[in-house]
């Protein structure tokens, strides 16, 4: 089942507009509210009615505009027709257990993403100066990446022996008083919407660095949000990713407990128990701009948080600039040390 959004005015293709947060017609400029956009406006061809999508299955979808085969892999849920450029949503991959419950729509447009990326490259303190002189952006893709958002409860219990040390001098002796304390903490913490990247294509480390998303922008999922972007479905279930999230949140609980034990010189844990429980899991699509960039015959991939504009990725490094930083800082620090020393009148 292929969904395409047609303008009620002129019949041209509509895409989601990040600026207004509405569906916008690219020819006449008409805007439609996503939430109120009713099914009757959707013009779709019921290819195989009641078809339920099977795992790993590659269906052949056809563009309703031009009839061309829509090129997609098994994970794609939204894309554009490679012939006529129409935005298409593969609806049967977004139903049942594959139906996302929430989405953060793009709030940064493709143009803004490109400009922000260029500005970021120019400011690169260790990137080559020639890195952004020519327009070498090969491709900017707006991608909705599947995430699981976990609401979790973390219970933690810690028993510890802590010490306070006091030093003082009486006569010719220095006394050290070490006071021991029996310390106990039990915490009940709640975490909301801890994200875990559910796509096997995305680099987890890269995705973690894109955080945080501002959850004020979280909306109930609606297919028109995907119009004009690429979207993927999850590869890992929330059960499969739970360990990853659990490890992460255990550290948060641990850090919380540590922050409540204060005013001691030393803390030794005797007992620690942390339990993470799942309260609710939501399937979410989060916006990412992927920027493919070519520099000196090498491709570089950058990701930008499609909501906040934060950029991550490995840029090319300039050995010269790194060396300059290293040498500059070293010489600067050395001179300062020398000046301080000679002012104090000690050194040679």
């Amino acid at each position: 089942m292929v969904l395409q959004y047609k303008c009620p005015n002129c019949g041209a293709d509509m895409v989601f507009d990040s600026e207004s947060g509405m569906l916008a017609c690219q020819s006449c400029g008409r805007k439609e509210d996503v939430e109120e956009y009713s099914e009757e406006h959707e013009w779709f061809q019921d290819q195989e009615s009641q078809h339920t999508f099977k795992e790993g299955e590659v269906n052949e979808y056809h563009c309703n505009n031009c009839g061309a085969v829509i090129v997609s892999d098994a994970d794609t849920t939204a894309t554009t027709c490679s012939f006529c450029g129409a935005a298409v949503v593969l609806n049967d991959r977004l139903t049942g257990s594959l139906a996302p419950s929430v989405i953060i729509p793009f709030s940064i447009s493709k143009e803004q993403a490109g400009n922000a990326f260029k500005a970021w490259c120019k400011n690169g303190l260790v990137t080559p100066s020639g890195f952004m002189t020519a327009d070498r952006i090969k491709n900017i893709t707006g991608l909705y990446v599947p995430f699981w958002l976990y609401d979790l409860n973390g219970k933690g219990e810690v028993k510890a022996t802590c010490t306070k040390v006091r030093r003082y001098t009486r006569g010719e002796y220095t006394y050290t008083d070490t006071s021991y304390y029996d310390v106990y903490r039990k915490v009940d913490l709640n975490f909301f919407l801890v994200p875990a990247d559910a796509s096997s294509k995305m680099n987890d480390e890269l995705m973690d660095k894109l955080e945080p998303y501002n959850y004020q922008g979280l909306k109930d999922f609606n297919t028109p949000y995907l119009a004009g972007y690429i979207a993927e479905k999850y590869n890992y279930t929330h059960e499969e990713l739970f360990d990853r999230v659990k490890n992460r949140v255990e550290k948060y609980v641990d850090a919380y407990i540590r922050s409540t034990i204060q005013g001691y010189s030393s803390t030794t844990y005797n007992y620690k128990q942390i339990n993470i429980r799942r309260k609710r899991v939501q399937y979410a699509l989060l916006p990412v701009w992927m920027v493919y960039y070519n520099y000196k015959q090498k491709d570089y991939l950058f990701a930008m948080n499609g909501q906040t504009g934060k950029i991550v990725g490995k840029p090319p490094l300039s050995a010269q600039k790194i060396l300059a930083w290293f040498a500059g800082t070293s010489v600067g620090v050395f001179l300062i040390l020398r000046i301080i020393t000679s002012l104090l009148g000690g050194g040679f």
Binding site: T161, Y175, Y184, V187, T260
Partner: peptide
């Protein structure tokens, strides 16, 4: 989120002395 239960109980103090 909160601390459900907690205590800090003093146990003892030991003193060592070192000649200055």
């Amino acid at each position: 989120s909160r601390v459900v239960d907690h205590w800090d109980r003093y146990i003892r103090t030991t003193t060592t002395k070192v000649r200055n």
